[in-house]
C-alpha cells in the first residue's frame, strides 16, 4: 500500500485571485516581508499497487484525469509506502 501526497497549484502563468487576496490581507496585518502567496489544494490518496513505478503511474493518471484541470493547474506529489500498516 502507498499514500500519495498530491499538491495542486495554479501554473505560474495563471493569476491566482485567492492567493492575491490572502497576500493583501497578510500585508495589511503588517507581514511586510511577504512577496507572494499561492493557494493550492492538497490530497492524500491511499492506493494499492504492485510496485512504486506502478503507483506513480496511477497517481499521475488519475491526477491528470480528475484532480487537476490542465488548462490552469499543475501538481507534484510524494509517495510513501505504508506496507507495515498493511501487514499489521
Amino acid at each position: 500500500m502507498y499514500t500519495a501526497k498530491i499538491y495542486v497549484t495554479y501554473k505560474p502563468s495563471i493569476v491566482d485571485p485567492q492567493g492575491e487576496v490572502i497576500q493583501a490581507a497578510l500585508q495589511r496585518m503588517n507581514y511586510q516581508g511577504i512577496s507572494s502567496v499561492t493557494q493550492g489544494k492538497y490530497f492524500e490518496v491511499n492506493l494499492a499497487a504492485p510496485n512504486v513505478a506502478a503507483a506513480k503511474n496511477e497517481v499521475a493518471n488519475f491526477t491528470d484525469a480528475l484532480l487537476i484541470n490542465q488548462n490552469t493547474e499543475t501538481y507534484r506529489f510524494e509517495l510513501v509506502s505504508t506496507d507495515d500498516e498493511v501487514q499489521a
Binding site: I14, V15, P17, Q18, V21, N69, N71, T72
Partner: peptide
C-alpha cells in the same frame, strides 16, 4: 475549449 475558474475580482 478552456476552463472557468475563480473570478478575478473576489
Amino acid at each position: 475549449p478552456g476552463q472557468l475558474f475563480g473570478n478575478e475580482q473576489p
